[in-house]
């Protein structure tokens, strides 16, 4: 069984973000594997293992031929990667990203399943996985908290507002997984060494047969028209607990007629 995992490479979320002069997210310095996608990588490795063979291929769209995040996922055990990097991609939105990633999936060849995260840490639109599926003409099973493969079918537990639904579809299909579905393994020393020699197929927008007009600012067909700091909320009263402060809370609730 062959599985493709979409992995986003993002600036370290621990460092405060900032905007470039053209109002896109600053993506300088080393990028890392989005933690949300580490669950997808682990899931793919386990599914291929259970199926008794096959390959895990990573696809990623990132600026400046960035591979640091891909190397992390390769060190976990993924077999190879396709990296789409091109100056024309600056400003690409979710739909453009899906167009690119769907083409990258096609380039990966014989694919049974595509796994992505429910939402990325820095973009969190959460639309890219079903958009990829629609581009490919495949079913999308979203918000999976459990994934099983059998008899040419994928079955998931789909997180819902009220609990979960059991949903299935035949392969090939796209699945988006929530955080915590599996415990991502730590790359071993051997894995890290092996990752250095695993193939990364670096391609451009043109190589994928897409026009530069499909992606970037032009393809996004939207304009950032205003950026301003959020209004601050005022602090009220702050008191040290002296054993009786609970009464202040009770009083506060009373004044609001909550109790």
């Amino acid at each position: 069984m062959n599985v493709v995992v979409c992995v986003k490479q993002i600036p370290d979320p621990a460092t405060p973000g900032s905007l470039d002069s053209d109002n896109t997210l600053k993506r300088e310095g080393k990028l890392i594997l989005d933690e949300s996608d580490s669950f997808g990588v682990e899931m793919a490795l386990q599914l291929v293992d259970k199926a008794g063979g096959g390959e895990v291929t990573l696809v990623s769209m990132a600026p400046n031929n960035e591979v640091s995040g891909l190397r992390t996922a390769l060190a976990m055990g993924a077999h190879k990667a396709i990296l789409v990097s091109d100056d024309a991609l600056a400003g690409t939105d979710a739909l453009g990203t899906a167009k690119v990633l769907a083409k990258a999936v096609e380039r990966a060849g014989d694919v049974d399943l595509v796994i992505a995260a429910t939402e990325s840490t820095d973009g969190y639109t959460g639309t890219v996985p079903p958009q990829i599926a629609e581009r490919l003409g495949w079913p999308s099973l979203t918000y999976a908290r459990k994934v099983e493969i059998g008899d040419g079918k994928v079955t998931i537990e789909r997180q819902t507002e009220a609990g979960y639904d059991v949903v299935d579809a035949s392969l090939p299909a796209v699945v988006s997984v929530t955080a915590g579905v599996v415990e991502p393994r730590y790359p071993s020393f051997k894995g890290i060494m092996a990752a250095k020699n695993k193939p990364v197929d670096q391609v451009t927008v043109g190589d994928l047969g897409l026009s530069p007009d499909d992606v970037g600012w032009k393809g996004a067909r939207q304009e950032i028209t205003k950026v301003e700091p959020a209004p601050a909320r005022q602090a009220g009263e702050k008191i040290e607990d002296d054993g009786e402060s609970f009464q202040r809370i009770v009083q506060y609730l009373e004044n609001l007629k909550i109790i």
């Binding site: 639309t127 581009r135 999308s140 918000y143």
Partner: peptide, 24 residues
Amino acid sequence: AQSYDGRDAIARLSVKLDRPVLTN
């Protein structure tokens, strides 16, 4: 709505119509 089904619907529709989506 930025909900489970809302996101599935807007995502698939955006490809069908070839329109960008603004989310969140």
